[in-house]
Design a binder for these strands. Structure first.
Lengths: 191, 191
DNA sequence: GTCTATATTAAGATAGAC
DNA sequence: GTCTATCTTAATATAGAC
Protein backbone atom coordinates (compact mmCIF):
# COMPACT_ATOMS: atom_id res chain seq x y z
CA UNK A 1 0.00 0.00 0.00
CA UNK A 2 2.90 2.34 -0.66
CA UNK A 3 0.85 3.98 -3.41
CA UNK A 4 -2.65 4.60 -2.12
CA UNK A 5 -3.37 6.95 -5.00
CA UNK A 6 -3.41 4.16 -7.60
CA UNK A 7 -5.80 2.19 -5.49
CA UNK A 8 -8.01 5.22 -5.02
CA UNK A 9 -7.90 5.87 -8.76
CA UNK A 10 -9.02 2.31 -9.47
CA UNK A 11 -11.93 2.56 -7.06
CA UNK A 12 -12.99 5.94 -8.44
CA UNK A 13 -12.85 4.65 -12.03
CA UNK A 14 -14.73 1.47 -11.09
CA UNK A 15 -17.35 3.56 -9.28
CA UNK A 16 -18.02 5.57 -12.43
CA UNK A 17 -17.93 2.60 -14.80
CA UNK A 18 -20.18 0.42 -12.65
CA UNK A 19 -22.66 3.27 -12.73
CA UNK A 20 -22.42 3.91 -16.46
CA UNK A 21 -22.01 0.37 -17.82
CA UNK A 22 -23.20 -1.78 -14.95
CA UNK A 23 -21.11 -4.07 -12.74
CA UNK A 24 -21.11 -7.18 -14.88
CA UNK A 25 -20.62 -5.39 -18.18
CA UNK A 26 -17.55 -3.56 -16.85
CA UNK A 27 -14.36 -5.56 -17.43
CA UNK A 28 -11.00 -5.29 -15.69
CA UNK A 29 -9.65 -4.07 -19.01
CA UNK A 30 -12.18 -1.22 -18.98
CA UNK A 31 -11.11 -0.11 -15.50
CA UNK A 32 -7.39 -0.56 -16.22
CA UNK A 33 -7.77 1.53 -19.36
CA UNK A 34 -9.59 4.29 -17.49
CA UNK A 35 -6.85 4.44 -14.87
CA UNK A 36 -4.12 3.99 -17.52
CA UNK A 37 -2.40 1.07 -15.82
CA UNK A 38 -1.77 -2.48 -17.00
CA UNK A 39 -4.02 -5.36 -16.07
CA UNK A 40 -1.07 -6.94 -14.27
CA UNK A 41 -0.67 -3.95 -11.99
CA UNK A 42 -4.38 -3.99 -11.47
CA UNK A 43 -4.23 -7.41 -9.84
CA UNK A 44 -1.63 -6.18 -7.40
CA UNK A 45 -4.31 -3.94 -5.90
CA UNK A 46 -7.42 -6.11 -6.27
CA UNK A 47 -7.41 -9.88 -6.49
CA UNK A 48 -11.01 -10.28 -7.64
CA UNK A 49 -13.79 -8.28 -9.22
CA UNK A 50 -15.86 -8.76 -6.08
CA UNK A 51 -13.12 -7.05 -4.07
CA UNK A 52 -13.41 -3.97 -6.28
CA UNK A 53 -17.16 -4.00 -5.89
CA UNK A 54 -16.83 -4.04 -2.12
CA UNK A 55 -14.40 -1.13 -2.28
CA UNK A 56 -16.81 0.80 -4.51
CA UNK A 57 -19.66 0.15 -2.09
CA UNK A 58 -17.47 1.36 0.79
CA UNK A 59 -16.74 4.52 -1.14
CA UNK A 60 -20.41 5.11 -1.89
CA UNK A 61 -21.36 4.51 1.74
CA UNK A 62 -18.86 7.05 3.02
CA UNK A 63 -19.69 9.59 0.29
CA UNK A 64 -23.39 9.22 1.06
CA UNK A 65 -22.85 9.63 4.79
CA UNK A 66 -20.75 12.74 4.18
CA UNK A 67 -23.48 14.19 1.98
CA UNK A 68 -26.17 13.51 4.60
CA UNK A 69 -24.01 15.14 7.29
CA UNK A 70 -23.59 18.14 5.02
CA UNK A 71 -27.36 18.43 4.44
CA UNK A 72 -27.86 18.21 8.19
CA UNK A 73 -25.70 21.31 8.59
CA UNK A 74 -27.05 23.19 5.59
CA UNK A 75 -30.74 22.74 6.33
CA UNK A 76 -31.99 24.71 9.32
CA UNK A 77 -35.32 22.92 9.44
CA UNK A 78 -36.10 19.23 8.72
CA UNK A 79 -38.19 20.34 5.76
CA UNK A 80 -35.19 22.08 4.20
CA UNK A 81 -33.13 18.95 4.66
CA UNK A 82 -35.72 16.74 3.01
CA UNK A 83 -35.76 19.24 0.17
CA UNK A 84 -32.01 18.70 -0.18
CA UNK A 85 -32.76 15.05 -0.86
CA UNK A 86 -35.49 15.81 -3.38
CA UNK A 87 -33.22 18.29 -5.13
CA UNK A 88 -30.57 15.72 -6.01
CA UNK A 89 -32.91 14.70 -8.82
CA UNK A 90 -32.27 18.16 -10.27
CA UNK A 91 -28.61 18.41 -9.28
CA UNK A 92 -27.74 15.02 -10.81
CA UNK A 93 -30.20 15.38 -13.65
CA UNK A 94 -27.71 14.91 -16.48
CA UNK A 95 -26.42 11.60 -15.14
CA UNK A 96 -29.87 10.37 -14.12
CA UNK A 97 -31.16 10.92 -17.64
CA UNK A 98 -28.34 8.77 -18.99
CA UNK A 99 -27.85 6.10 -16.33
CA UNK A 100 -30.67 6.28 -13.78
CA UNK A 101 -30.02 6.28 -10.04
CA UNK A 102 -26.65 4.76 -9.02
CA UNK A 103 -28.12 3.23 -5.86
CA UNK A 104 -31.22 1.70 -7.39
CA UNK A 105 -29.58 0.38 -10.53
CA UNK A 106 -26.74 -1.30 -8.62
CA UNK A 107 -28.97 -3.06 -6.10
CA UNK A 108 -31.30 -4.13 -8.91
CA UNK A 109 -28.40 -5.59 -10.89
CA UNK A 110 -26.89 -7.36 -7.89
CA UNK A 111 -30.30 -8.85 -7.06
CA UNK A 112 -30.51 -10.44 -10.50
CA UNK A 113 -26.93 -11.66 -10.29
CA UNK A 114 -27.79 -13.18 -6.92
CA UNK A 115 -24.60 -11.47 -5.74
CA UNK A 116 -23.64 -11.73 -2.09
CA UNK A 117 -22.79 -8.01 -1.95
CA UNK A 118 -26.38 -7.06 -2.68
CA UNK A 119 -27.15 -6.53 0.99
CA UNK A 120 -24.13 -4.26 1.41
CA UNK A 121 -25.12 -2.24 -1.64
CA UNK A 122 -28.57 -1.94 -0.12
CA UNK A 123 -27.06 -0.24 2.92
CA UNK A 124 -26.76 2.94 0.86
CA UNK A 125 -30.54 2.90 0.60
CA UNK A 126 -30.70 2.30 4.33
CA UNK A 127 -28.55 5.36 5.04
CA UNK A 128 -31.00 7.54 3.11
CA UNK A 129 -33.98 5.79 4.66
CA UNK A 130 -32.83 6.28 8.25
CA UNK A 131 -31.78 9.85 7.62
CA UNK A 132 -35.13 10.72 6.04
CA UNK A 133 -36.97 8.95 8.84
CA UNK A 134 -35.10 11.08 11.34
CA UNK A 135 -36.16 14.27 9.56
CA UNK A 136 -39.81 13.24 9.48
CA UNK A 137 -39.62 12.36 13.16
CA UNK A 138 -38.26 15.85 13.89
CA UNK A 139 -41.35 17.16 12.11
CA UNK A 140 -43.40 15.37 14.73
CA UNK A 141 -44.47 12.57 12.42
CA UNK A 142 -43.01 9.81 14.56
CA UNK A 143 -45.51 7.08 13.82
CA UNK A 144 -45.45 7.62 10.08
CA UNK A 145 -41.79 8.56 9.76
CA UNK A 146 -40.53 5.31 8.24
CA UNK A 147 -43.45 5.02 5.82
CA UNK A 148 -42.86 8.62 4.74
CA UNK A 149 -39.14 8.00 4.30
CA UNK A 150 -39.83 4.97 2.13
CA UNK A 151 -42.43 6.92 0.18
CA UNK A 152 -39.94 9.68 -0.66
CA UNK A 153 -37.30 7.12 -1.62
CA UNK A 154 -39.77 5.29 -3.87
CA UNK A 155 -40.94 8.46 -5.58
CA UNK A 156 -37.38 9.48 -6.41
CA UNK A 157 -36.53 5.98 -7.64
CA UNK A 158 -39.53 5.96 -9.94
CA UNK A 159 -38.65 9.38 -11.31
CA UNK A 160 -35.07 8.31 -12.01
CA UNK A 161 -36.16 5.11 -13.78
CA UNK A 162 -38.71 6.77 -16.07
CA UNK A 163 -36.63 9.88 -16.72
CA UNK A 164 -33.86 7.59 -17.93
CA UNK A 165 -36.21 5.38 -19.96
CA UNK A 166 -37.76 8.32 -21.80
CA UNK A 167 -34.78 10.65 -21.47
CA UNK A 168 -37.20 13.30 -20.28
CA UNK A 169 -35.76 16.25 -18.38
CA UNK A 170 -39.06 18.08 -18.16
CA UNK A 171 -40.59 15.08 -16.43
CA UNK A 172 -37.98 15.32 -13.66
CA UNK A 173 -38.80 18.98 -13.01
CA UNK A 174 -42.52 18.20 -13.08
CA UNK A 175 -42.23 15.39 -10.53
CA UNK A 176 -39.87 17.35 -8.29
CA UNK A 177 -42.52 20.06 -8.15
CA UNK A 178 -45.12 17.47 -7.12
CA UNK A 179 -42.81 16.11 -4.44
CA UNK A 180 -42.23 19.60 -3.05
CA UNK A 181 -45.97 20.23 -2.97
CA UNK A 182 -46.50 16.90 -1.26
CA UNK A 183 -43.84 17.75 1.34
CA UNK A 184 -45.44 21.13 1.99
CA UNK A 185 -48.73 19.42 2.76
CA UNK A 186 -46.93 17.76 5.68
CA UNK A 187 -45.07 20.82 6.93
CA UNK A 188 -47.56 23.64 6.58
CA UNK A 189 -47.55 25.78 9.66
CA UNK A 190 -44.76 23.82 11.27
CA UNK A 191 -41.99 26.27 10.39
CA UNK B 1 -40.41 -23.42 -38.70
CA UNK B 2 -41.88 -26.90 -38.83
CA UNK B 3 -41.82 -26.99 -35.03
CA UNK B 4 -43.08 -23.70 -33.70
CA UNK B 5 -43.44 -25.12 -30.22
CA UNK B 6 -39.69 -25.40 -29.67
CA UNK B 7 -39.26 -21.81 -30.74
CA UNK B 8 -42.06 -20.71 -28.47
CA UNK B 9 -40.53 -22.68 -25.61
CA UNK B 10 -37.20 -20.95 -26.14
CA UNK B 11 -38.78 -17.51 -26.11
CA UNK B 12 -40.85 -18.31 -23.02
CA UNK B 13 -37.79 -19.63 -21.17
CA UNK B 14 -35.69 -16.64 -22.23
CA UNK B 15 -38.46 -14.29 -21.12
CA UNK B 16 -38.42 -15.77 -17.63
CA UNK B 17 -34.63 -16.01 -17.37
CA UNK B 18 -34.03 -12.46 -18.64
CA UNK B 19 -36.40 -11.32 -15.93
CA UNK B 20 -34.89 -13.40 -13.15
CA UNK B 21 -31.17 -13.25 -14.02
CA UNK B 22 -30.96 -10.29 -16.36
CA UNK B 23 -30.26 -10.35 -20.10
CA UNK B 24 -26.47 -10.33 -19.99
CA UNK B 25 -26.16 -12.78 -17.13
CA UNK B 26 -28.35 -15.32 -18.93
CA UNK B 27 -26.31 -17.62 -21.17
CA UNK B 28 -27.41 -19.72 -24.13
CA UNK B 29 -26.59 -22.72 -21.99
CA UNK B 30 -29.05 -21.49 -19.33
CA UNK B 31 -31.86 -21.17 -21.85
CA UNK B 32 -31.03 -24.45 -23.60
CA UNK B 33 -31.04 -26.22 -20.24
CA UNK B 34 -34.41 -24.70 -19.29
CA UNK B 35 -35.93 -25.88 -22.58
CA UNK B 36 -34.05 -29.19 -22.41
CA UNK B 37 -32.52 -28.95 -25.88
CA UNK B 38 -28.91 -28.90 -27.02
CA UNK B 39 -27.06 -25.68 -27.74
CA UNK B 40 -26.71 -26.81 -31.34
CA UNK B 41 -30.44 -27.10 -31.79
CA UNK B 42 -30.76 -23.74 -30.13
CA UNK B 43 -28.85 -22.04 -32.92
CA UNK B 44 -31.18 -23.52 -35.48
CA UNK B 45 -33.91 -21.31 -34.05
CA UNK B 46 -31.95 -18.20 -33.10
CA UNK B 47 -28.68 -17.12 -34.67
CA UNK B 48 -27.74 -14.52 -32.08
CA UNK B 49 -28.57 -13.54 -28.52
CA UNK B 50 -29.92 -10.24 -29.80
CA UNK B 51 -32.42 -12.15 -31.94
CA UNK B 52 -33.77 -13.89 -28.83
CA UNK B 53 -34.00 -10.56 -27.05
CA UNK B 54 -36.05 -9.12 -29.89
CA UNK B 55 -38.38 -12.14 -29.80
CA UNK B 56 -38.78 -11.73 -26.03
CA UNK B 57 -39.61 -8.04 -26.45
CA UNK B 58 -42.17 -8.95 -29.14
CA UNK B 59 -43.75 -11.42 -26.75
CA UNK B 60 -43.89 -8.87 -23.95
CA UNK B 61 -45.39 -6.25 -26.25
CA UNK B 62 -48.17 -8.54 -27.37
CA UNK B 63 -48.81 -9.87 -23.85
CA UNK B 64 -48.98 -6.32 -22.54
CA UNK B 65 -51.37 -5.21 -25.27
CA UNK B 66 -53.60 -8.20 -24.58
CA UNK B 67 -53.64 -7.36 -20.88
CA UNK B 68 -54.55 -3.73 -21.56
CA UNK B 69 -57.34 -4.82 -23.89
CA UNK B 70 -58.61 -7.11 -21.17
CA UNK B 71 -58.59 -4.31 -18.58
CA UNK B 72 -60.47 -2.14 -21.03
CA UNK B 73 -63.24 -4.71 -21.10
CA UNK B 74 -63.19 -5.53 -17.40
CA UNK B 75 -63.28 -1.97 -16.11
CA UNK B 76 -66.57 -0.19 -16.62
CA UNK B 77 -65.17 3.20 -15.70
CA UNK B 78 -61.72 4.68 -16.44
CA UNK B 79 -61.04 4.74 -12.71
CA UNK B 80 -61.61 0.99 -12.47
CA UNK B 81 -59.21 0.45 -15.35
CA UNK B 82 -56.49 2.54 -13.76
CA UNK B 83 -57.03 0.53 -10.60
CA UNK B 84 -56.33 -2.61 -12.66
CA UNK B 85 -52.91 -1.15 -13.43
CA UNK B 86 -52.22 -0.24 -9.81
CA UNK B 87 -53.30 -3.70 -8.71
CA UNK B 88 -50.62 -5.52 -10.69
CA UNK B 89 -48.26 -4.52 -7.88
CA UNK B 90 -50.36 -6.78 -5.67
CA UNK B 91 -51.05 -9.48 -8.25
CA UNK B 92 -47.37 -9.84 -9.19
CA UNK B 93 -46.15 -9.19 -5.67
CA UNK B 94 -44.17 -12.41 -5.27
CA UNK B 95 -42.12 -11.84 -8.41
CA UNK B 96 -41.70 -8.11 -7.80
CA UNK B 97 -40.25 -8.79 -4.36
CA UNK B 98 -37.65 -11.09 -5.93
CA UNK B 99 -36.88 -9.48 -9.27
CA UNK B 100 -38.47 -6.02 -9.44
CA UNK B 101 -40.51 -4.87 -12.43
CA UNK B 102 -39.75 -6.76 -15.67
CA UNK B 103 -40.23 -3.63 -17.78
CA UNK B 104 -38.15 -1.24 -15.70
CA UNK B 105 -35.31 -3.64 -14.98
CA UNK B 106 -34.90 -4.63 -18.65
CA UNK B 107 -34.85 -1.07 -20.00
CA UNK B 108 -32.45 -0.07 -17.23
CA UNK B 109 -30.10 -2.93 -18.09
CA UNK B 110 -30.24 -2.29 -21.83
CA UNK B 111 -29.51 1.39 -21.20
CA UNK B 112 -26.28 0.51 -19.38
CA UNK B 113 -25.33 -2.00 -22.06
CA UNK B 114 -25.91 0.71 -24.65
CA UNK B 115 -27.95 -1.94 -26.45
CA UNK B 116 -29.72 -1.02 -29.66
CA UNK B 117 -32.91 -2.83 -28.55
CA UNK B 118 -33.35 -0.45 -25.62
CA UNK B 119 -35.83 1.68 -27.55
CA UNK B 120 -37.91 -1.34 -28.46
CA UNK B 121 -37.93 -2.54 -24.87
CA UNK B 122 -39.06 0.94 -23.92
CA UNK B 123 -42.14 0.53 -26.11
CA UNK B 124 -43.66 -1.64 -23.39
CA UNK B 125 -43.53 1.41 -21.15
CA UNK B 126 -45.08 3.42 -23.97
CA UNK B 127 -48.00 0.99 -24.26
CA UNK B 128 -48.79 1.49 -20.58
CA UNK B 129 -48.21 5.22 -20.83
CA UNK B 130 -50.59 5.76 -23.76
CA UNK B 131 -53.21 3.48 -22.28
CA UNK B 132 -53.12 5.29 -18.93
CA UNK B 133 -53.21 8.65 -20.69
CA UNK B 134 -56.33 7.56 -22.53
CA UNK B 135 -58.04 6.64 -19.24
CA UNK B 136 -57.18 9.99 -17.66
CA UNK B 137 -58.46 11.76 -20.76
CA UNK B 138 -61.73 9.87 -20.43
CA UNK B 139 -61.91 11.25 -16.90
CA UNK B 140 -61.88 14.72 -18.44
CA UNK B 141 -58.28 15.43 -17.47
CA UNK B 142 -57.13 16.03 -21.04
CA UNK B 143 -54.46 18.62 -20.37
CA UNK B 144 -52.86 16.71 -17.53
CA UNK B 145 -53.45 13.22 -18.89
CA UNK B 146 -49.87 12.47 -19.97
CA UNK B 147 -48.34 13.91 -16.81
CA UNK B 148 -50.75 11.82 -14.74
CA UNK B 149 -49.94 8.69 -16.75
CA UNK B 150 -46.22 9.23 -16.21
CA UNK B 151 -46.83 9.91 -12.53
CA UNK B 152 -48.63 6.61 -12.06
CA UNK B 153 -45.94 4.76 -13.98
CA UNK B 154 -43.21 6.36 -11.87
CA UNK B 155 -44.94 5.59 -8.60
CA UNK B 156 -45.29 1.92 -9.51
CA UNK B 157 -41.68 1.74 -10.69
CA UNK B 158 -40.44 3.22 -7.44
CA UNK B 159 -42.53 0.80 -5.41
CA UNK B 160 -41.19 -2.18 -7.35
CA UNK B 161 -37.57 -1.06 -6.96
CA UNK B 162 -37.74 -0.49 -3.20
CA UNK B 163 -39.95 -3.49 -2.49
CA UNK B 164 -37.34 -5.64 -4.18
CA UNK B 165 -34.41 -3.92 -2.47
CA UNK B 166 -35.88 -4.35 1.01
CA UNK B 167 -37.97 -7.43 0.20
CA UNK B 168 -40.88 -5.69 1.88
CA UNK B 169 -44.37 -6.94 1.10
CA UNK B 170 -46.06 -4.65 3.59
CA UNK B 171 -44.52 -1.66 1.83
CA UNK B 172 -46.22 -2.66 -1.43
CA UNK B 173 -49.64 -2.82 0.20
CA UNK B 174 -49.00 0.51 1.94
CA UNK B 175 -48.05 2.28 -1.28
CA UNK B 176 -50.88 0.72 -3.26
CA UNK B 177 -53.25 2.16 -0.68
CA UNK B 178 -51.70 5.60 -1.15
CA UNK B 179 -51.99 5.30 -4.92
CA UNK B 180 -55.65 4.36 -4.64
CA UNK B 181 -56.28 7.34 -2.36
CA UNK B 182 -54.44 9.58 -4.78
CA UNK B 183 -56.53 8.26 -7.68
CA UNK B 184 -59.75 8.85 -5.73
CA UNK B 185 -58.81 12.49 -5.25
CA UNK B 186 -58.99 12.82 -9.04
CA UNK B 187 -62.20 10.88 -9.54
CA UNK B 188 -64.39 11.94 -6.67
CA UNK B 189 -67.87 12.71 -7.89
CA UNK B 190 -67.06 11.70 -11.44
CA UNK B 191 -68.53 8.22 -11.20
C1' DG C 1 4.54 -1.24 -7.67
C1' DT C 2 4.41 -1.79 -12.34
C1' DC C 3 5.08 -4.24 -16.39
C1' DT C 4 4.71 -8.16 -20.20
C1' DA C 5 3.52 -12.42 -21.02
C1' DT C 6 0.49 -16.47 -20.38
C1' DA C 7 -2.92 -19.75 -18.32
C1' DT C 8 -7.86 -20.75 -17.64
C1' DT C 9 -12.45 -20.64 -18.22
C1' DA C 10 -16.94 -19.52 -20.03
C1' DA C 11 -19.86 -17.99 -23.49
C1' DG C 12 -21.15 -16.85 -28.19
C1' DA C 13 -21.22 -19.03 -32.51
C1' DT C 14 -20.47 -22.65 -36.42
C1' DA C 15 -19.99 -27.32 -39.00
C1' DG C 16 -21.54 -31.37 -40.11
C1' DA C 17 -23.63 -36.07 -38.91
C1' DC C 18 -28.12 -38.14 -38.23
C1' DG D 1 -35.10 -30.33 -36.46
C1' DT D 2 -31.96 -32.13 -33.31
C1' DC D 3 -27.66 -33.74 -32.00
C1' DT D 4 -22.25 -33.81 -30.91
C1' DA D 5 -18.05 -31.70 -31.67
C1' DT D 6 -15.38 -27.79 -32.40
C1' DC D 7 -13.93 -22.93 -33.25
C1' DT D 8 -13.36 -18.19 -31.50
C1' DT D 9 -13.35 -14.57 -28.55
C1' DA D 10 -13.20 -12.16 -24.41
C1' DA D 11 -12.65 -11.86 -19.62
C1' DT D 12 -10.88 -13.42 -15.13
C1' DA D 13 -6.80 -14.48 -13.12
C1' DT D 14 -1.64 -15.80 -12.48
C1' DA D 15 3.67 -15.91 -13.07
C1' DG D 16 7.63 -13.84 -13.21
C1' DA D 17 10.85 -10.07 -15.02
C1' DC D 18 12.10 -5.27 -13.98
Amino acid sequence: MASPSTRRNIVAAADTLFYQKGFEHTSFADIAEAVAISRGNFYYHFKTKDAILDAVIDLRLSNTQAMLDQWEKEGEEPKDRILCFINILIANQANILLYGCPVGTLTTELTKLNHHSKERANEVFTLFRNWLRKQFSLLGLHKKSDALAMHVLARSQGVATLASAFHDEKFIRQEVRLMRDWLSSYTEGSI
